[in-house]
Design a binder for these strands. Structure first.
Lengths: 217, 217
DNA sequence: ATAATTTTGGACACAATTGTCCAATTCGTC
DNA sequence: GACGAATTGGACAATTGTGTCCAAAATTAT
């Protein structure tokens, strides 16, 4: 019973009840992502959370509601992580390629590799068709907020003369696509990608992106 | 009971038994992709195939085996479709951007949008962790064969002086990433993307790819 | 037409799961 | 240490799904 969510949990600085609630949410996120909605049994979640089944029903109601709460929770965390990284976007870089590559590395490491984002993507892919509202929620947070945020930063770089963009929104999607492509393949294995490879991916993506969009003197 | 697999079925030029078998396989592909392995019930598959449950057990054994056969079948079809399109890759184009864009359009339309590929990606994403051999099979056919094939064509273009590549394999992955990025978002909705949008995606991807890799005079 | 093969549909046993109830126990607080 | 609240674990009914069996019906080949 290796607990792959340990990284996310916060120590017991919360009211005791909230602590168990977090344990349940983390366990549920694991199991839902691994097994899908139908395949995830409440017993399995209870077992992984180290909690009795009844406690889950007490705190979170039925399976449907548990699922919704889990997704909402993870969406928040994932979004927060992303925007924390986005704040480090280089606004007036001296060495554009170097600083953008470093930003890409951070983005890959903290926002795309992190369990929250992975769970979310998988859950949306798996259960999106069956939970249309959830799909909408995710859409609002994911493509709806992240891409425009990236696009704004890129547009700013373009305005400052670093890039030549005619469609910042498109450039943002392409930037993210280049960044995530290799990871997508690796990730489905569940394999934890070594840092060196992540650096390489960030460098590859950034290099190609700049070959396409960097201003030429 | 709209049959979204009609496009794939072949008329009754087959031995009768094979015909029902195909119906089962198509229905199973639908249901597995929609509901995941755990959520897919044999009864639902039988109902959609217009066949009795017993017939499924007669022809294909238990659920596990049914799933494996479905994936193998779809993998074959998907792979065949891809390589059929790949044969139209422009080897000595007069207008590189134009011809590569047209190729991209074909690839998007016939190989990435098509139901086979979509089912496969979703099933692998959903159930890959629980069926390691299937994951390996897919990997062999997908990244294992398709990417090198694309890379070879790109390398050929580079050798002929059209492109400047130092890593054809990487360029192939990036080319595919640029192509698929917008589609991935649209597709999860199950929405059928209009042809005009597909053309646009192909043009956007190709344009950026060539901005990065086309030889400059 | 007749024989062989498949298909059908319904019944069945078995297992897993959901969600509820409740008495005993543990935990945090005062 | 004693009180109140939360947690536990086990039992429970109801539902759903798997996989098997079998006799009747339909389909296909001879």
């Amino acid at each position: 019973m290796k607990n792959s969510s340990a990284e996310i949990e916060q120590a017991s600085t919360w009211p005791p009840a909230q602590n168990k609630r977090q344990a349940i949410l983390n366990a549920a996120a694991d199991i839902f992502a691994e097994q899908g909605y139908a395949g995830a049994s409440i017993d399995a979640i209870a077992a992984r959370a180290g909690v009795s089944r009844q406690t889950i029903y007490n705190q979170l109601g039925d399976k449907d509601n548990l699922f919704k709460v889990v997704v909402a929770e993870i969406t928040d965390r994932s979004s927060a992580g992303f925007f924390r990284v986005l704040d480090t976007f280089p606004a007036a870089p001296e060495d554009l390629e170097k600083e953008l590559t470093e930003f890409s590395t951070r983005l890959l490491r903290k926002a795309i590799c992190d369990p929250n984002g992975r769970w979310l993507r998988k859950l949306v892919e798996t259960e999106g068709a069956r939970f249309p509202e959830l799909f909408e929620t995710w859409r609002e947070y994911g493509p709806g907020k992240k891409y425009p945020a990236i696009a704004a930063r890129l547009a700013q770089l373009a305005h400052a003369g670093y890039l030549e963009l005619d469609d910042p929104a498109l450039a943002a999607r392409q930037f993210m696509a280049l960044l995530a492509t290799d990871l997508r393949i690796e990730q489905q294995l569940g394999r934890r990608t070594p840092d060196a490879e992540i650096d390489q991916m960030a460098a590859n993506a950034t290099r190609t992106f700049l070959r396409a969009f960097a201003s030429r003197p």
